[in-house]
Design a protein around this nucleic acid. Structure first.
Lengths: 392, 392
DNA sequence: GGTGATCCTGCAAAGGTTTGCAGTGAAGTA
DNA sequence: TACTTCACTGCAAACCTTTGCAGGATCACC
């Protein structure tokens, strides 16, 4: 199995000593309900008693059993995070931000990886439903209707997908794609390719829509290539196709594909950005480290994670599930307010884009940039600088 | 807040309809205990009854409530995964593998990020203890004694750290460091620097020990630089120091630092590998994508995650916590077998290492390699190819 | 027909916590 | 003094499930 056992020993270990509310009650000479109240409704208990109970609890190392608490309150203080692919560098910052935000609110986070499999997503929602107060669906691959259906089982917040009637956190990739296309047109590119991502991706559709519109407006021709796997391999696989298509610039579905494409083009002897300009999406940490450094549409993944958690928890506070008196009758018709939030994106111009065939030689539109300028160029910038070229 | 509200609506939603074992019992005309047995001990129930119950359960969409089950069985079927920094690309593959392995065994995974903070680690173990059957501590930063102490509260498996008496999953970075140093010596380097990582890291100590021994054996001088933050910034920050130190090769604590160092050297006008060779550790996905492609010691992170989960679950099966009859008396003296597993590492030679000042011009020791050879060179290879040089 | 054995099912307690209700004693009010 | 109010605490049911025990039915065997 490729590994070596270094040691195998047996040792005496004190077994886990589960200290319960009852132990604390006994130690402090009060009834368990008083102990319970000390933690969940401190104002209902005499200050003197309270300090005594707290002292005993501290002494014994008591921690309320959240599962038992959940059983009766209906709130687990857990949330679920369902991710298409943890290894995709787009997600870790989102996971990190979401987990941090959740923990600040005293929630724990289940993380699950679906391997981009819609069936796994559904199964996971079912499996987690009883154990969490809500689930974050990140870049889901399943259908909208299924998502809606599942949302009746457990509160859902969707990231990177628009589902009517459900709280969603979106990144404005439409605007990002437009900015990217305008940037390229401003550099003198007129034949541009769009490397599509997974078919079922909302982001993919948005990008296509916006890129097509921007290209039309700018008098450029947009070639659609895809769908492709949203990975490095997916990008390098289409390098040959890109070369044959004769475009001078490419907007890729994400950074990984962009980087893969640059690799592939390099292998074919096509230089970036001298012969072909490449723009990615996401601004993963990696994009700062490749050569050339990647021009990309930065998406606020951390903010998305935090926002999504906030929305979930807020929604959760509004309509507690499994409330005491619910009895057998299903409390139908709970009014739930759902907001959809769109987060801004920023075009970050680095070194993978350069002048195209139609560049105006007089004006140094694309002056060679210093190392890692990392200057977020808002959507206005390309338009402002090259408005006349675009207007034609 | 940098975001725009697109929509804010209210909608009617069917509330969560928690279907319990009682509903299934009623629907299928049996007692709840029979339903319970249908799921947890099928052989005890009449086949006819069983199919009827299963049909009803399916119909109603019943899923056992794991929290309630845990309350009485003492097994939550959850595990905790405590990570120093999710955004560090070393960890996502580990998380992914561990989660996948756990789910295959019908376990769910809590993931928590400590931001490299030992205090957060301790707090998290406490917080999760009651909710999980065990915790995976990945590259912990807290002291061994604290880890041992915490292991009395909840079963622990430690990754990337050796703690006597506890199950550990280790990567043989000692061997890896040795192979790296031998590789560098074989290339003709005699002045080598070791970029250290965090002080409290076990990996760091192992690497230092092994690298020093290998350098001594090979007649090279090893300069220790550190401790440093295990990040790209940590690497680029010492570039100047590396240049001044006059070494011709560097072994970095991990790939991120190595990449940062290359960046930093590049900014100083020092070329890699022509003037300085750089070796990393981990073989994160990124190391294949930077220019030059990074020579690195590949650590089997996926295997580590899977192995750790297996060890945790096995240990867990042996000594069920909170068993029924435990009563008040603590079942002291539970014998627990703890194994420590060492996983092999592989030196992957890519483009960031080249001939040093003492290279033998006749033999093309470091012939220019094709694109992405990715040929794992076992520890034997450098020794075999350059044995005589090393023996001096 | 009687005796066990076997198979299946129901009963009820248990697990740790929350919470509506009622009870206690003291303080405040008339 | 009698009555109300208030602050605090205890009681017990409830959440959902598992599981030891016992009861009932069926069957085989003598």
């Amino acid at each position: 199995m490729g590994h070596t056992h270094v040691t195998a020993a047996t040792s005496d270990e004190g077994a886990a000593v589960p200290v319960t509310i009852r132990d604390v009650a006994r130690a402090s000479g009060v009834h368990i309900s008083t102990v319970s109240r000390t933690f969940s409704a401190p104002h209902l208990v005499n200050p003197e008693t309270r300090v005594r109970v707290l002292a005993c609890a501290e002494d014994l190392g008591y921690r309320p059993n959240r599962a038992a608490r959940a059983l009766i309150t209906g709130r687990t203080h857990n949330i679920g995070l369902i991710i298409a692919d943890i290894a995709n560098p787009f997600f870790p910052p989102l996971i990190k931000a979401a987990e941090s935000q959740a923990r600040n609110r005293d929630y724990h986070v289940f993380v699950a990886d679906t391997n981009e499999d819609p069936a796994a997503e559904e199964e996971l929602v079912h499996a987690l439903a009883k154990q969490v107060d809500g689930v974050l669906l990140c870049s889901p691959r399943m259908s909208n209707s299924l998502i809606e259906q599942l949302s009746r089982e457990v509160p859902l917040v969707v990231v990177n997908r628009q589902v009517t009637g459900l709280p969603c956190v979106l990144m404005d990739v439409g605007q990002g794609a437009r900015a990217a296309i305008e940037h390229l047109i401003g550099l003198g590119h007129r034949a541009i390719a769009l490397l599509g991502g997974p078919r079922s991706s909302w982001t993919n559709r948005e990008m296509r829509r916006a890129a097509a519109a921007a290209a039309r407006a700018g008098g450029a021709e947009l070639t659609l290539l895809g769908p492709n796997a949203p990975t490095e391999t997916g990008g390098s696989a289409v390098a040959e196709q890109v070369r044959r298509s004769g475009v001078s610039a490419v907007l890729a579905y994400n950074d990984l594909m962009a980087i893969g494409l640059i690799e592939g083009l390099d292998a074919l002897g096509v230089r970036v950005p001298q012969e072909v300009s490449v723009v990615g999406v996401d601004d993963i940490a990696l994009s700062r480290l490749t050569r050339p450094k990647l021009t990309t549409v930065a998406t606020p993944t951390g903010a998305a994670g935090r926002t999504a958690v906030d929305m979930l928890l807020q929604q959760d506070t509004e309509s507690p599930r499994g409330a005491r008196g619910s009895g057998a009758g299903t409390a139908l018709g709970v009014r739930r307010t759902t907001a959809q939030v769109m987060l801004q994106t920023d075009l970050v111009i680095r070194d993978s884009t350069g002048p195209g065939p139609h560049a105006r030689p007089a004006r140094p539109l694309a002056a060679p940039l210093g190392p890692d300028p990392h200057c977020p160029a808002g959507p206005g910038i390309p338009t402002a600088a090259n408005g006349d070229a675009v207007a034609s």
